[in-house]
């Protein structure tokens, strides 16, 4: 555990909590892509199956349970409890175009051809692109609520901090995981355009809106 890993995890936690609280407090999931949230629930489910097979640390187990729990709570709010506020007309990204290639790649490029390891690999690849339906939705509507942009910022920041964590671990522990690193680079690159808008607009007190 190093400071980049820890702040990365806390950033991830902040993102998840911000989104859940935003939806809960406003009683609305307008502007939120339910598809991205389902993909994240799928990511956590397939990655954290090792909760059932191996114990790493109390920290590890606790965070995994919180991530999964919050993720399913978010999906429940969007598709069940607050379904009337869900903006499905703008959430039109075709997720099969992500899941099918990602599933194929997980079978072809993995550390070990075992069910748990293939599912872990699938979750790493899927996480790297799971935000695309949300970004697609924002590009379609041309705007995002400020609180939604805070969510996206912390979610993007988390993987960027993990990149520094991986550099740290390579230098000080001689450890590297090529699958996680490459997927993490892809994931972080997808947020770059958003990071630019966040810094130049949202942090200056303006709403995030895209030119028509």
């Amino acid at each position: 555990m190093n400071i980049f890993r820890l702040t990365g995890d806390l950033s991830h936690l902040a993102a998840i909590i911000i989104l859940l609280l935003k939806i809960w407090k406003s009683r609305s999931c307008a502007g939120i892509s339910g598809k991205s949230q389902v993909l994240f629930a799928l990511v956590f489910t397939t990655r954290y199956l090792d909760l059932l097979t191996s114990f790493i640390s109390l920290y590890n187990t606790t965070m995994k349970v919180i991530y999964i729990g919050c993720s399913y709570a978010t999906v429940y709010l969007i598709y069940m409890k607050l379904k009337a506020t869900y903006d499905g007309n703008h959430d039109t990204f075709r997720v099969e175009f992500l899941i099918v290639p990602v599933g194929g790649l997980a079978f072809l490029v993995n550390h070990d051809f075992s069910p748990l390891e293939i599912l872990w690999t699938f979750s790493i690849y899927l996480e790297s692109v799971a935000i695309l339906p949300q970004l697609f939705m924002i590009s379609k509507t041309g705007e995002a609520e400020t609180i939604t942009t805070h969510y996206l910022f912390f979610l993007g920041l988390y993987r960027a901090l993990y990149l520094i964590n991986w550099i740290w671990r390579f230098y000080f522990e001689g450890f590297f995981d090529m699958i996680a690193i490459v997927a993490g680079v892809v994931q972080t690159i997808l947020y770059c355009d958003f990071f630019y808008l966040y810094v130049t607009k949202v942090l200056k007190g303006k709403k995030l809106s895209l030119p028509a």
């Binding site: 995890d9 991530y67 550390h111």
Partner: peptide
């Protein structure tokens, strides 16, 4: 990544 102890990172 490929060790038997599972994945430490989240």
């Amino acid at each position: 990544g490929s060790d038997d102890d599972g994945h430490d990172e989240l």
